[in-house]
Design a protein around this nucleic acid. Structure first.
Length: 556
RNA sequence: CGGAGAGUAGCGCAGCCUGGUUAGCGCGCAGCGUUCGGGACGCUGAGGUCGCCGGUUCGAAUCCGGCCUCUCCGACCA
C-alpha cells in the first residue's frame, strides 16, 4: 500500500513558535503534532503513524514478557483509597460526584482485579495497559499524554524483583529498537514504597531531567537526590570559639575577604519552617543546599525557607547575614561536610558579629549530619568517590515498587498477606520526543527505520507529466507490496519544496522521479541518514532491490 | 519561589509612550497565470473576540487593576 500526499493530510511548515524547544519545533514543522492549547497537543496523521509504530514495539515486548492486556477508563473515581493526588486534575459531575485524571492508572488496575485475587495460586500477575496520563504541571509540553503502563502483582519480593529485571530488559529492547541508548537513575517518586523509583533516562544535550552519574561505578541518580561523598576537611586546626566584629559583612564572599578564610571554612545557616516547626540548616560556605534532600531527610514536604527578614530576626535575634547555629534555639540539622570543619566561621546571631573557631558538637548542638548538598559536576561519588558527572536527559520510563492498596491474598499456609505490586510506565510522547531529539539534523527528522512513519518518500517532480506519475505509482505499488510504507509526493509543488519536505519528515529513503534520470530509464534514490545517492533502472524489481539494500545497510 | 520581559492573522513582528479613519508589515496560506532538479515570479484574495476579566472614558490594542499563559535569568543572599 502507498499513500498519495495530495490525498493525505500532512501539513509541513517552515516556521514554528520560537519559544518551543528545537525538538518540539521539529515535531510541529514536520506535521506530527499541533498545539491546541498551552500544554495540550494533538497528533496529526503522521504523528499517529509514528506513535503507532512505537506502540507496536512496546506491545510486542510486553507480549513477550507475558503481560496481559487490559483497558481502563482514563477517568477515575475519586472515592476513598483511590488516592487522587493534588497534582491530579479534579473533576466533578453534575451530581457532585468527584472524578480525577492522574499520571497513572495504577489504582484503577488494583480495583479492576482486586476482587478476584485471593490466593497464592493467582499470583504473580502481570498486566499491561495503554492509556493516557495527566500531569498538572505548568511548563511541561504535554499535560495529557499517551502512556503505556504495566502492573505486576506478587506474593513475595523475589518474584517482584525478578519482574523488575525483566521489565527493564523489555524497556531496553524497546529503546534499542527506537535507536536510543539509556541509563537508569534513581529519581524521587512519592507513589513508591520507598519514596524513589528507577527512571529510564535518555541522555541528550537538551532535556528536563538532570542526572548525576559516576563514570567509574555506574551509580546514577537524579541530581536532586544523588549521594555525594565527603570532600574532605578544609584547612585549619581546632581552636577556641571567639566572637569577632564583622560590621556589614553578610555574605560568604565578604567573610572570605574580611577574615582571610576560605569559603570551605564558612558555614551558611538557613532557617526553614515546616509542619514540625522551625529548624536551622547548615551547609558549608562553598556548597549549595539541596532542598529536595532536606525535605526527604526530614520527611516534611511542606518545608519552606524563611525569607522574611522580620521572621528571621524574631527567631535568631539577628538579620540575614549574621545567622548562626551557636545559641540558636531551634533544632539544627547539618550537611555532613560541616562535621569535618575544625574551625568554622558562623554567624553570631547578633548584627555585625560572627564567631570564628566554631566546631559542630562542641559549640552548638546538631540533631544529625545528613547529605544535604546539591551535587555539582566533579563532586565525589557517594558510592566510590570518583568524580560525578551531570548530564541532561529525557525521562521516558519509570519502574517502581508499590503497595497494592489493601489487596491481600492467602498463602499456602492459609495466612493472609499483603499483595506486593510493581508499576511500570512508559511515556510514549517522551519516547517520541527523545527519538526526534536524538535523530535529527539541520534539515529535519532522521527516523530510525523501524519507527519511520514512512520508509520511502517518492518525489514526483512533474506530477503533470503522465509518464512520471505512471512510473512513480508502479514503484510505489511494488514497494508497498513488499511491506514498506510509502508516501508518494504528487503535489503540485516545486522540486525544491519536495526535497526539503522529504528531509523534514525524515523518511529513510527518498526516491526521485524526474526527467533527468528518467530519460536514462532510471530513478534516483537518496538515503536520509548519510545522504548516500544511487540510481536504479526504473523497474519495480530493480528499485525494490535497491531500496531494500539502502535500508538494510548499517547506519553509521 | 523570586526578578525581568513578552502575549496583536498559521509564524515572525510594528503600532501602545502621546486613547480618535477601515489595526498594519514580512513570511506563509487560497485562486489564476507564468515557472519546474535543492524552499521560484506576477496578479488577485482570504484570514483578527489585539491573551482573559473588570475599570476609567463620549471613545481603549493603546491608560489603570486583577487573572491566565509563555520566555529568559536568579534558583543559595546569609
Amino acid at each position: 500500500m502507498f499513500v498519495r500526499w495530495s490525498r493525505y493530510f500532512l501539513p509541513t511548515r517552515k516556521d514554528a513558535p520560537a519559544e518551543a524547544s528545537p525538538r518540539l519545533r521539529l515535531m510541529l514543522r514536520a506535521g506530527l503534532i499541533r498545539r491546541l492549547e498551552p500544554g495540550l497537543y494533538g497528533f496529526l496523521p503522521l504523528g499517529c503513524r509514528a506513535l503507532e509504530k512505537i506502540e507496536r514495539i512496546v506491545r510486542e515486548e510486553m507480549t513477550e514478557l507475558g503481560a496481559l492486556e487490559i483497558r481502563l477508563p482514563r477517568l477515575r473515581p475519586a472515592a476513598r483509597g483511590n488516592g487522587l493526588a493534588s497534582k491530579d486534575l479534579h473533576l466533578t459531575d453534575g451530581k457532585g460526584r468527584r472524578f480525577g485524571l492522574g499520571s497513572s492508572h495504577a489504582s484503577a488496575a488494583i480495583s479492576l482485579i482486586g476482587g478476584d485475587v485471593n490466593s497464592w495460586r493467582d499470583l504473580p500477575l502481570l498486566f499491561c495497559c495503554e492509556g493516557s496520563g495527566y500531569r498538572d504541571t505548568v511548563g511541561s509540553w504535554a499535560r495529557e499524554f499517551p502512556l503505556y503502563e504495566a502492573f505486576g502483582f506478587f506474593a513475595d519480593q523475589g518474584s517482584r524483583e525478578e519482574t523488575h529485571r525483566y521489565m527493564l530488559r523489555a524497556y531496553s529492547r524497546v529503546l534499542a529498537r527506537c535507536g536510543l541508548g539509556f541509563r537508569t537513575a534513581e529519581v524521587p517518586n512519592e507513589a513508591s514504597e520507598d519514596g524513589s523509583s528507577l527512571a529510564v533516562v535518555v541522555f541528550e544535550e537538551e532535556g528536563d531531567e538532570e542526572i548525576a552519574w559516576c563514570t567509574s561505578c555506574g551509580y546514577a541518580a537524579s541530581r536532586c537526590l544523588a549521594d555525594v561523598g565527603s570532600p574532605g576537611p578544609p584547612p585549619g586546626t581546632e581552636k577556641a570559639l571567639e566572637l569577632v566584629e564583622t560590621p556589614g559583612v553578610r555574605t560568604v564572599e565578604g567573610l572570605v575577604e574580611f577574615l582571610g578564610v576560605s569559603p570551605a571554612q564558612v558555614v551558611k545557616t538557613f532557617l526553614y519552617v515546616g509542619k514540625r516547626g522551625t529548624v536551622g540548616v547548615l551547609v558549608r560556605g562553598d556548597h549549595e543546599l539541596e532542598e529536595e534532600k532536606l525535605r526527604r531527610a526530614l520527611g516534611d514536604r511542606s518545608l519552606r525557607r524563611v525569607d522574611d527578614p522580620d521572621e528571621a530576626q524574631a527567631i535568631a535575634g539577628a538579620p540575614f547575614g549574621f545567622l548562626g547555629p551557636v545559641g540558636l534555639s531551634v533544632p539544627i540539622w547539618a550537611d555532613k561536610a560541616v562535621r569535618d570543619i575544625p574551625a568554622a566561621v558562623v554567624g553570631g546571631n547578633r548584627e555585625g558579629y560572627h564567631y570564628v573557631g566554631a566546631k559542630a558538637g562542641r559549640d552548638f548542638r546538631v540533631e544529625g549530619f545528613l547529605d544535604l548538598r546539591r551535587v555539582r559536576e566533579g563532586d565525589p561519588c557517594g558510592r566510590c568517590g570518583a568524580p560525578l558527572r551531570i548530564r541532561k536527559g529525557i525521562r521516558v520510563a519509570e519502574l517502581l515498587r508499590m503497595g497494592a492498596a489493601g489487596l491481600t491474598f492467602s498463602d499456602r499456609d492459609g495466612r493472609v498477606k499483603p499483595v506486593l505490586a510493581g508499576q511500570y510506565s512508559l511515556e510514549l510522547h517522551r519516547l517520541l520526543e527523545a527519538v526526534v531529539e536524538k535523530h535529527h539534523d539541520d534539515f529535519g527528522i532522521v527516523w530510525p527505520v523501524e519507527i519511520a512513519p514512512f520508509h520511502v518518500v517518492i518525489a514526483v517532480l512533474r506530477p503533470d507529466v503522465p509518464e512520471q506519475i505512471r512510473v512513480a505509482e508502479r514503484m510505489a505499488s511494488a514497494l508497498g507490496a513488499s511491506g514498506l510504507d510509502v508516501l508518494l509526493d504528487d503535489r503540485d509543488r516545486s522540486p525544491g519544496e519536495k526535497f526539503h519536505d522529504a528531509k523534514l519528515i525524515g523518511a529513510p529513503v527518498m526516491l526521485v522521479v524526474g526527467h533527468r534520470a528518467l530519460k536514462r530509464g532510471e530513478i534516483e534514490a537518496e538515503r536520509r541518514w548519510d545522504g548516500a545517492r544511487a540510481s536504479f533502472p526504473a523497474e519495480p524489481t530493480e528499485v525494490l532491490h535497491g531500496v531494500w539494500g539502502l535500508l538494510r545497510a548499517e547506519r553509521g
